[in-house]
Simulated assay, not measured.
Amino acid sequence: MSSCCSWWCGGDCGPRLCTAATAGAWAGKKIVDRLPASTFVVVIEVGLVVSGALLLVTGG
């Protein structure tokens, strides 16, 4: 049993994380399929700018 996740899921993180990752990937694919390509590019660029700004402000 891994001590890193035993406090929140009883140590059986694998199946729970796999289920969450699969559900997230499925939902993300459905959302991206509905977005126009130009909107997707803007969303990604905004995310990168925000991430970079947070990196500069917080120092890492």
Score class of each variant (00 low, 15 high):
G10E: 01
V49H: 07
R16S: 07
C4H: 11
T39Y: 10
D33T: 01
P15R: 13
L54D: 03
C4Q: 12
G52Q: 05
V43R: 08
R34F: 03
P15N: 09
T58Y: 13
K29W: 12
C18P: 03
L56E: 05
R16P: 02
V57R: 15
W7T: 08
T58E: 12
V49N: 07
A23S: 13
S6V: 06
M1S: 11
D33K: 13
I31R: 14
F40G: 03
E45M: 07
S3K: 15
A37I: 05
I31F: 14
G14L: 12
G14D: 03
W7F: 15
I31L: 15
L55Q: 06
F40Y: 08
S2H: 11
A37K: 13
I44Y: 04
C18I: 00
I44R: 09
P15D: 03
A21M: 13
A53K: 08
G60W: 02
G52E: 02
G52W: 01
V42D: 04
L35K: 04
T22G: 10
G47A: 04
L48S: 05
C18A: 12
G59D: 05
G60N: 06
T19F: 13
L56Q: 06
K30E: 06
V32F: 08
A23Y: 05
W8R: 10
W7N: 13
W26P: 06
W26E: 11
K29A: 14
G11Y: 03
A20H: 00
G10R: 07
T39W: 10
V42F: 05
C13L: 12
A25N: 10
I44Q: 09
G28N: 10
L56Y: 02
E45S: 03
G14T: 03
P15I: 02
G28C: 15
T22R: 15
A20F: 00
P36L: 07
V57K: 14
C9H: 06
D33P: 05
C9Y: 03
L56G: 08
C4Y: 12
V46W: 02
R16I: 05
S51A: 15
P36T: 01
T19P: 11
S3H: 13
G11A: 10
G11I: 01
T19D: 14
D12A: 13
A23N: 09
E45G: 00
V32I: 10
V49E: 04
G11N: 09
A37Y: 01
V42S: 08
V32T: 02
M1P: 09
V43W: 01
C4F: 13
L54S: 04
V46L: 14
A37H: 07
C5D: 00
C5H: 11
A27E: 00
S38Y: 02
G52M: 04
S51Q: 12
S2E: 11
C4G: 11
T22S: 13
G47H: 02
S2M: 09
V43E: 00
S6Y: 02
A53N: 07
C13A: 12
T19Q: 15
A21L: 14
A21Y: 02
I31H: 06
C13P: 05
G11H: 07
K29P: 04
L17R: 02
D33V: 01
R34C: 11
A23M: 13
R16V: 03
S2W: 09
C9V: 06
C13D: 02
V41Y: 07
L55G: 08
T19R: 15
P15F: 04
A27H: 01
C4N: 11
T19C: 15
V49L: 15
V50Q: 11
V50N: 05
F40V: 00
S3N: 12
S6L: 09
S38R: 08
S2V: 04
